Computed example of a mutant assay.
Amino acid sequence: MKKILTSGIALLAAGVMGATSAQAETLRLLTWGGYAPENVIELFEAETGHTVEVTKSNNEEMVAKLRATNGGGFDLAQPSQDRIAGAQAEFDIYKPIDLSKIDESQFITSMLEATKGNTTYNDEIYGVPHVWGTSGLVVNKAEAGDVKDYLDLCDDSVAGKVSYRLKRPTLIGFAFSMGLDPFAAYNDEEAYKDILAKVEDKLIECKPNVKTYWGGGDEIKNLLRSGEVVAAMAWDTGGWSLNEDNADITFVAPEAGALGWIDTFVLPKRGRADEAAYAWINFVMQPEIAAMITNSAGNFTASKGGDEGVDEALKVRYQESFPPEAVDNIKWYPTVPANLETLEGAVLDRVKAAN
């Protein structure tokens, strides 16, 4: 822990974490399970003098809690990036991030810039990235070594041994693999309809390759374990979990880009401990601290170098799946316009019904 404490003290000395020059505060943190483990809280409190009170929640509850209090009750919250700009426009529950109080050098640049863009409202930035994850391909490389992109699931070499969900990620992933940009068309309904029509045709054409459309995480894991399925669209953590038992199976970031979610840091509008909030952000983005959070939560963070200190086996799996160019190629989910869900649902229903 000496290294961690030393690096934290260096940040304090540099003026990034201002707890030494301000009165200690109580940080009321609204977050997900695993994102604020007790060992990290203890180090933070010892180093800064601030104290931390954690309330565990999820996206829907976070927005509901902050909406009910007009942005009060908490000093730092962690909704996903697609729950920020829209919620701010509708409910006015956040306040802008003061980037001068954040050590941006600690963040993976592509993730920081993507989150800035996706959480901007009225030219103000409301979020910075923390924990992230992706969906992409989980492949048995011994049986389906040529599957490197979503469209490869339609190849004759894996006929009858493919699985994916009839959900939005499948539509989005296939679109990117076909050279289309569905996210760029989110605010142009006619353009999005055109993309969906092309993806629908491809999914119907690909249907003979599909063993089954999986519904739950345990289901797809069992299909891959048994060998009934050799290539699937699924989550990164699921692929790494399977790799523990079978070295041939692992997560592959598709050539068109894995589809990524990011849980962020935002400041509730009526939070009263901004000093402690910024101190926490800078503290947990240190690579050594970030590794402790990954070991707790199971997902990686946007901390530059944060993968180095995690459990050795998980680090190897992550680095094999995500070389730096694959990280920079992740397609991050933006806010989804409400009317798109109906369009997507109709497409998925037709794919399911097709012979």
Rank of each mutant, 00 (worst) to 15 (best):
G260V: 00
L171W: 03
S100R: 09
G49I: 00
K3P: 00
K202F: 14
T212R: 11
E38T: 08
I108W: 06
A46F: 07
D307L: 10
K269P: 08
V147Y: 07
V210Q: 10
I281G: 00
R165I: 04
I249F: 07
E45P: 01
G173R: 11
V210F: 14
D218H: 09
P323F: 12
A184G: 04
A291Q: 05
K2N: 12
V128E: 07
V327R: 06
A64G: 11
V131D: 07
L314Y: 13
W240E: 12
L5E: 13
M62Y: 06
F176Q: 09
I108N: 04
W32P: 02
E42C: 00
M233Q: 15
G136I: 02
D201T: 14
T134G: 04
F44Y: 13
V230G: 04
A247F: 07
I281T: 04
F251L: 07
E190C: 07
V54A: 09
L224C: 10
I262G: 04
L11I: 01
D311Q: 08
A144L: 04
I281K: 06
N187E: 14
E60N: 14
S296V: 05
P334S: 05
I84S: 02
A231S: 11
N140M: 06
S177H: 03
D328W: 01
N222P: 15
V40L: 03
A346T: 15
S303Q: 02
M233S: 15
N140S: 04
F74H: 12
L151T: 14
S241G: 13
A197H: 06
K116L: 03
L29P: 11
Y333K: 13
W32G: 00
M178R: 11
I293R: 09
Q23E: 15
L267H: 07
L314A: 13
G238F: 10
F283D: 00
E320Y: 11
A290R: 05
T264R: 03
E124K: 15
A10P: 06
V40S: 01
V131M: 10
G72H: 10
S110Y: 05
C154S: 15
